[in-house]
Amino acid sequence: MGLTNRKADQRSPRKVVVVVYEGVKLMDAAGPLQAFRDARFSDGCPAYRVALASESGGLIMSDTGVRLETVPLHRNVLRDIDTLLIAGSELPAALIGTESLRARLARCLDRPRRLGSVCTGAFVLAELGVLDGHEATTHWAFCTQLEREFPAVIVKPDAIFMISGRIWTSAGVSAGIDMALAMIEDDLGHLAALDVARGMVLFLKRPGGQSQFSVELRRQVHDGRGQFDDLHNWIRANLDANLAVPELAAAVRMSPRNFARVYLRETGERPARAVEKIRIEAAVRLLESTDDPVKVVASRTGFGDDERMRRAFVKTYGTSPQDFRNRFGRRQR
């Protein structure tokens, strides 16, 4: 993703407007707003002007019961706008916003340099035809519905956020912050976005990068009782060790045969595949956050050689470690 047409050394704050409505999910709106509000130019001046807007302005009730003060979505708010985001909701897609709000949005979609949605806000963009022919995502629970109702949209159900031209869409809730950080990095550079992430005590890019579910979260869903949590932590601390079944079984004081059987039953996958996934996730973190050569990453994460790691990446992500770094690494912007 290249830099935008405004360079980071310009000191004119960009206007970001987040559109909300009755029942909006609070974090869908507040998360990105906080990130943009915290972003600074190198001289400490605010890099963005942020606003919450609704159809008529005034107080809007969020899903938490917290009321949000908004300004009306009219020409003054849209003047000199840089980024327009539509927040999401847990409401059925058909109830998100109103017909008159969508009609008002339809008249102004060509104004922002960058147009996006958080969570189910993607349904509003899809209904307006904005997402036709574009790759897009939304909350994992609604991806199938988005694909079914809007077949012209290329839905990416596993992505944290997607960028297709000037159109940005994110997955649910906290993914809106991930997308906002990526926008800040695109506008202002890596260090400015990193400063925001540090202030919010967040990853600039999540471990595992571009997936709504990390390897570990998927594993925790299966291993609901957490029987092998300590083992997984031990594996992460010993990635370059021999992690065959006998060694894993010894670590949890079980016989190899019993361990393999119980592990498969509790986690839904075989120990060898679990080890490979943990190594891949560790390699992803290094590829995203360091400049270590691929061979060094392969060694540090226990793959032994870069060809073995390449095969694992192709199987998991459909791409090589170097291509993954080129797309998601810290030097991409």
Score class of each variant (00 low, 15 high):
H74T: 05
L248F: 10
V275C: 02
F213M: 11
A122S: 14
T144E: 15
S89F: 01
G23Q: 03
T301C: 15
T70V: 08
R166M: 10
I184D: 04
W140P: 00
F142C: 13
L188P: 06
D132M: 00
G31Y: 02
N76K: 08
S89N: 07
A250G: 13
T120V: 05
D9A: 14
G172A: 09
D240M: 11
G329L: 11
A126V: 09
R111K: 15
E266L: 07
A249Y: 03
G58R: 11
Q145D: 14
R40D: 08
L115S: 03
A152F: 05
G165Q: 10
A8Q: 04
D306S: 15
I278L: 14
S299Y: 08
P92T: 06
L3V: 13
L286N: 00
A272L: 10
F41I: 01
G57W: 00
M309N: 06
V294S: 07
K315M: 11
A249H: 06
F36K: 10
H190D: 04
A197R: 11
M27S: 04
V297N: 00
T144K: 14
A8T: 05
S299W: 08
G2N: 11
G65Y: 06
A237P: 01
R6I: 14
V155N: 06
F259A: 08
R75D: 15
G2H: 12
G224H: 12
L78D: 05
V66Q: 13
S117F: 09
N326K: 14
A283M: 04
V294P: 02
R300D: 13
E90L: 10
N76F: 03
G165R: 04
G199I: 06
V130R: 02
F324V: 03
A282H: 00
A94V: 10
F328G: 01
E269V: 08
A152Y: 08
C143W: 07
